Amino acid sequence: MAATYLITSGTDIRTVAGKLGHANTNTTTIVYTHLLKSAEKETADKMGDFLRLAVEKEKEKQKKQAR
C-alpha cells in the first residue's frame, strides 16, 4: 500500500525501491508497472494542462499588445 501511495503521488522509483528494501529498481518497476504507467499518464496530462495555459496566457498578452 505504501508503494502504491508513493508511486501515485509522484515519488521517484529509486526512493520507492529503497523504502521497500528492493536492492534493484527493476524489481519495483516490474511489480508496480501498472502504477508507473498511470503515474506517467497523469504527469503527461499535467504537463499538457500547463502548456495549454501558457499558450493561452501568451495569446492574451499578444492581444493586449496589439491594441
Rank of each mutant, 00 (worst) to 15 (best):
G10L: 02
T25G: 00
K41L: 10
D45N: 09
T33I: 07
E56Q: 14
E60C: 01
T8G: 03
G10F: 02
I30N: 15
E60P: 02
E60N: 11
Q62P: 00
E58A: 11
H22N: 12
M47C: 01
I13N: 06
H34N: 10
A3K: 06
K64T: 03
M1C: 04
L51S: 06
F50C: 02
L53T: 13
Y5C: 03
Q65H: 10
I13C: 03
S9K: 09
A39K: 07
K37I: 07
I30Q: 15
A66L: 14
V55Y: 09
A66P: 04
L35H: 08
A2K: 09
R52S: 04
T29N: 10
K41I: 14
E58V: 06
M47E: 11
V31T: 15
L36H: 10
T29V: 14
R14P: 00
A39C: 02
E42K: 11
K59V: 13
T8N: 07
T15S: 13
L51V: 09
E58F: 04
Y5M: 04
Y32E: 15
V16H: 03
I7N: 06
L36Q: 10
K57L: 07
I13H: 01
G48C: 06
G21D: 08
G21M: 13
K57W: 02
L6G: 03
F50A: 11
T29L: 12
K37S: 10
D49F: 07
D49H: 03
V55S: 09
T33K: 15
R14D: 08
T25A: 13
L35S: 09
Q65Y: 10
A2V: 09
T11Y: 00
T28Q: 13
T43P: 00
G10V: 03
G21C: 12
T8V: 09
I30T: 15
K46H: 03
N26F: 06
R67N: 05
K61A: 10
V31K: 15
R14E: 13
T33R: 15
N26V: 12
V55D: 13
A17P: 00
K61P: 02
V55G: 01
R52P: 01
D45H: 02
T27L: 13
A17S: 14
Y5I: 04
G18E: 14
T33N: 15
Q62V: 10
R52F: 06
N24M: 07
T25P: 00
R52N: 08
D12L: 03
A44S: 04
A17Y: 02
V55M: 11
E56D: 14
E56M: 12
G18Y: 01
T29P: 00
V55K: 11
K61Q: 09
T43D: 05
T11M: 11
L51K: 06
I7Q: 06
D45E: 08
L35R: 08
V16A: 12
A2G: 03
A44P: 00
S9R: 13
L53V: 07
I7G: 07
K63T: 05
H34L: 04
T27R: 12
D12R: 13
T11H: 01
E56K: 10
Y5V: 04
N24G: 01
T29R: 15
K57P: 00
D12W: 01
L53E: 12
